[in-house]
Amino acid sequence: METKTRAKRNAFIDAGACVACGCCVKVCPLGAISVFRGVAARVDASRCVGCGKCAKECPASVIEIREVQV
């Protein structure tokens, strides 16, 4: 049987433009994002499944969902 492998997706944050409001933290179903020291949000890549909820919620639209090489 042929198995299809789908590329893993992850959320990436443009930390320089992040306002650290924490909207992304609230919507993440996996608790994969945290606001680091009140400066910018950070993604725990091992927990992120790239669902995109954070990117949709982010008021500054600084989160991007990209495919990653595993």
Binding site: V19, A20, C21, C23, E57, C58, P59, A60, S61
Partner: peptide
Amino acid sequence: FKPRSWCVYCPMG
């Protein structure tokens, strides 16, 4: 824009 757009330019934030 987005619901919490205020957070982007909120002076307190």
